[in-house]
């Protein structure tokens, strides 16, 4: 028990810390940060641990959001059940698509995902318009059940719920990183062919990693669906596909807290910028170029490596003095 607390305690502390920030910051901002950081974790998991870059992440998030939305709009009123439906839809979709896409080489993978996202948007906006009601979207905010202890329409209740979900996901990811599967993922990223020679089925490892990453995206999608109480095709707009790439890279890919830090910085900046400037593409685009030119390591890895760097420098100074 103590060992587990020692391993995962930091995660609980970090997310409790985000909750404490509620004293100073608006709830809507923190909720957005929490959900978006989960979404970014999905991207970061794919790129950092499997070396797969997806330009179509909104598709996987959107499918789950629509799963939840359709259930709550047409069938039930229980938001938790709605979330389950959304996640199952997201996982099943990722399982099928993953089976096809994971075989592709990296350039094809990225582009195929981009295409998938564009098609998903189109399907929900126009092809299934009689079910999804197109751009109007599905509304069910008033239909969702409320419980005394969990009222999704109360921002503080929702923030607490989202933080617990996020902490759970971070614990799972950290657990995976420490497992044989995590090592296998990294090995695929480093040298897939070598792993094949050693007799591993890299296809299955990649497929499993892909499904896991997109299950995380699905969780983010269902959280958005129950938070807003409505879902529209905008959630899987291709225009928004680069956002998660920017945030992921900003925070540093593959690091545990990178997605959270990147999201925090990005959304804070976006809120500040859009308050004074309507052309957000100019800002996001410039940031993307600057982040890429500065290097792939992002803010979080700088923060993580700074103490180590200082220690190394101190040791170096000592040894050269002595």
């Amino acid at each position: 028990m103590m060992r587990l607390l020692k391993t995962y305690g930091t995660i609980l502390l970090v997310f409790a810390g985000v909750g404490v920030l509620r004293l100073a910051l608006p709830g809507a901002f923190l909720i957005h940060v929490t959900i978006f950081s989960i979404y970014t974790m999905a991207f970061s998991f794919l790129m950092g641990r499997l070396g797969l870059v997806s330009f179509g992440q909104p598709a996987y998030m959107g499918i789950a959001a629509y799963g939840t939305g359709l259930y709550l709009h047409y069938f039930g009123t229980n938001p938790l059940l709605g979330m389950m439906v959304g996640i199952i839809a997201g996982v099943a979709f990722a399982g099928v698509i993953g089976g096809l896409f994971v075989r592709l080489s990296s350039s094809y993978f990225t582009l195929a995902n981009l295409a998938l996202c564009a098609i998903g948007f189109f399907v929900f906006q126009r092809a299934l318009v009689h079910i999804t009601r197109g751009d109007t979207g599905l509304w069910y905010l008033g239909r969702m059940e409320r419980w005394p202890l969990l009222n999704f329409r109360d921002p503080d209740h929702f923030l607490t719920f989202a933080l617990i979900v996020a902490a759970g996901i971070w614990i799972v990811v950290k657990g995976l990183d420490r497992s044989v599967f995590g090592a296998a993922c990294l090995a695929v990223k480093a040298n897939e062919r070598k792993l094949q020679f050693l007799g591993y089925n890299t296809y299955r490892i990649k497929w499993l990693g892909f499904v896991m990453a997109n299950s995380i995206a699905a969780v983010a999608g269902t959280l958005y669906a129950v938070y807003f109480g409505f879902v529209s095709p905008a959630i899987m707009d291709v225009l928004r596909a680069p956002e998660v790439v920017v945030v992921g890279l900003l925070g540093g890919v593959g690091s545990l807290y990178g997605p959270l830090i990147g999201t925090f910085v990005y959304i804070a900046m976006q809120d500040l910028v859009s308050a004074i400037f309507v052309y957000w593409e100019l800002v996001v685009g410039t940031m993307l170029v600057l982040v890429m030119m500065a290097g792939e390591r992002g803010i979080a890895s700088l923060l993580e490596s700074a103490p180590r760097l200082l220690r190394m420098r101190a040791r170096h100074d000592r040894s050269s003095a002595g």
Partner: peptide, 17 residues
């Protein structure tokens, strides 16, 4: 390849803005 893809997406967005 990813590097060019992400950077050029940035250029595209700046241009659209």
């Amino acid at each position: 390849v990813m590097f060019s893809m992400i950077t050029s997406y940035g250029v595209l967005l700046v241009g659209i803005g």
